[in-house]
Design a protein around this nucleic acid. Structure first.
Lengths: 207, 207
DNA sequence: ACCTGAACACCGTTCAAGT
DNA sequence: ACCTGAACACCGTTCAAGT
């Protein structure tokens, strides 16, 4: 709308992220993005080399939006805060998160986070090698948790009580005894609490 | 080749998985799959409802190929064995793994694994609620680890020593002190050891 | 330097028609 | 019941042409 401003890589990436937030990853095409910008599809190629580059750019944009927590005197609390900063950045753009998880983010965008995390882990008394291992374990846990969370989105959060009840009954009738026993627990998921459980478990392992 | 056998859902799914293993997810289209089966694209719709159903079917196929380890007297060793059975199933079809991670696998295919894991965790002395939390943390860690592993594939495994050296220098020149210090460790990744580190950390937290 | 329009070689999916 | 062929409404990307 308004006057058609000159395109830049920044405006293209922001518009792409906005489109993904609003309509999902499947709705993002070079043509639909161009239309949202009031421009022809081919104009985009002056600012991104191809669609893969566009997706990389979106991932970097989301990652660069992460606010790193201030340090405190408690290094374990700092680890926890970093984990939740990661989550905050991800759930701010849930539809875009698969891009972060799936593609190898060219170190550049991730380095701020890596630097902060390594510094905190070293302060907790880990040697360099162990700090890197621990960082990788944390990132894997956080990534896996968030993939489940954004994949499950509404239906699994427990808000949809009819769905939860239906799933509980289905699990209870599965014929697997341990599954039957835990049916109600398996049928819904408090993502925030689940995330905290995992983070705290790894922190416990660290001590 | 040979006589053109009648299509079934099974043959369609197996051919799809074979195509993904050989040429990657991007190479899988209804048309390319049909050609591989010596058939027209529209014939596939007699056996899968649409492409999403096809992808679900592939995910289930991979998951159903998992060999669950026999129980031992050591429940913690059993947890570890389950984690590596999960990894074995995934790396047998690395190109297909993003399908498992991304989509909500309709419980059915995952239940065998869930049942085995819950039983082992209960035997380790966890109550029902904690066992479910712990299972979710494990699955998140394993999923996140495997996404990194299949995403990084060759280049990051340490085999490509020129690449490792180039990445090390780049990280060392990044201007981030903690990153610079750990540059060599960050530049490559022994996926098997990394996986074991994460699994053992969570097991330590469990005890 | 940046944007456009037409074109190419693809997609997933529908529908009516065959057997 | 299952397979086909033509068609529809899309894709990403190229290229030559405009300004």
């Amino acid at each position: 709308m308004a006057v058609k401003a000159r395109l830049t890589r920044e405006t293209v990436l922001w518009a792409a992220l906005e489109l993904v937030d609003r309509a999902g990853l499947d709705a993002l095409s070079m043509r639909s993005l161009a239309k949202a910008l009031g421009v022809e599809a081919m104009s985009l190629y002056n600012h991104v080399t191809d669609k893969a580059d566009l997706l990389d750019g979106i991932a970097e944009l989301v990652l660069s939006g992460m606010t790193l927590p201030a340090r405190t005197e408690d290094c374990f609390a700092d680890v926890r805060a970093l984990a939740f900063a990661f989550r905050d950045a991800a759930v701010a753009h849930p539809q875009a998160f698969p891009l972060l998880a799936t593609r190898q983010l060219g170190a550049a965008a991730a380095l701020r986070f890596t630097e902060a995390a390594l510094a905190v882990l070293r302060d907790c008394g880990l040697d360099e090698r162990t700090a890197v291992h621990m960082l990788r374990s944390f990132v894997a846990l956080l990534t896996g948790s968030l993939i489940r969370e954004v994949g499950a989105s509404l239906s699994f959060s427990g808000k949809d009580s009819a769905g939860v009840r239906a799933r509980t009954e289905q699990l209870a009738a599965s014929g697997f005894p341990a599954v039957r026993g835990a049916a109600a627990l398996l049928a819904s998921c408090d993502h925030d609490a689940e995330y905290a459980f995992g983070v705290d478990a790894l922190i416990r392992a660290m001590r």
